[in-house]
């Protein structure tokens, strides 16, 4: 589904991604782990095109999308859920979803408001509420639902558990597992290892802009050396 090869990106003048390479098979949930500033967020932003990669390939379903404009990448089937939520606070829940709407693809059924409200029942109860008048947990659900309206093949989730109450994080984990059942491929950037362990099949560890380790979650759990060296937990 996704094959990243020797990706370099700058943030301002700082060289953040220094040749990151990894692959993500279709249908899996992969978590990107790493210290602060290691390049998790920049990887996500480079994939969606908000940060324009300086060098390298991003092979997405057989096409090199490196250097494309964000809207073209999104239309190609990459869905991006940013950190810090970023709902449109002046728009209602339904309007927020409308912004995300893109045509269905691959002959799969399109996400509709009703299907999303079944996945996130809370949202269904506040269809006309302005995004700014929702709690942090509700906003996080809305940003995921909004991105799903674009019928992505691959969903990028940047720190979805950040700043949320534990009970909401559990709900989020349930939703991600439900998406996986639907056949959506997910790439997750996370700091919360407990959450990652619950939802991910495999992990990639990023350090100083390079992927230094990849493997299954079980392998990560067994590899004490990697966890102390790069994750310091």
């Amino acid at each position: 589904m996704l094959n990243v090869d020797d990706l370099h990106s700058y943030y301002g003048r700082a060289h953040i991604l220094q040749g990151a390479s990894f692959a993500l098979p279709a249908g899996e949930v992969m978590v990107l782990l790493g210290r602060n500033g290691a390049g998790k967020s920049t990887t996500m932003k480079s994939l969606i095109g908000i940060v324009r990669p300086a060098r390298g390939r991003i092979d997405f379903a057989g096409v090199d999308i490196a250097g494309w404009e964000p809207h073209r990448i999104a239309r190609a089937g990459l869905g991006y859920v940013p950190e810090e939520r970023r709902v449109f606070t002046d728009l209602t829940v339904l309007e927020n979803l409308e912004v995300g709407r893109q045509p269905a693809r691959d002959g799969r059924p399109a996400w509709t408001e009703e299907r999303l409200f079944a996945l996130f029942p809370n949202l269904g109860r506040m269809r006309t509420r302005a995004g700014g008048r929702m709690s942090g947990g509700e906003q996080q659900m809305l940003t995921i639902a909004r991105t799903l309206m674009g019928n992505p093949r691959l969903l990028l989730l940047d720190e979805p558990s950040e700043g949320l109450a534990p009970v909401i994080v559990e709900e989020m984990a349930g939703a991600i597992l439900a998406l996986k059942q639907e056949g959506v491929t997910v790439l997750l950037a996370e700091q919360n290892l407990h959450f990652a362990a619950r939802v991910a099949d495999r992990a990639a560890v990023i350090e100083k802009g390079r992927i230094v380790w990849t493997g299954t979650m079980a392998a990560l759990h067994a590899d004490e050396a990697v966890r102390t060296a790069y994750l310091a937990v």
Partner: peptide, 25 residues
């Protein structure tokens, strides 16, 4: 209109609108 909704969204966060597949330019 959808155009109007997109415009109001872009007023607040143009980058996010682009990441959702809208040609913000």
């Amino acid at each position: 209109t959808r155009w109007g909704t997109l415009v109001r969204a872009a007023t607040q966060d143009r980058e996010m609108v682009a990441a959702l597949g809208v040609d913000q330019r």
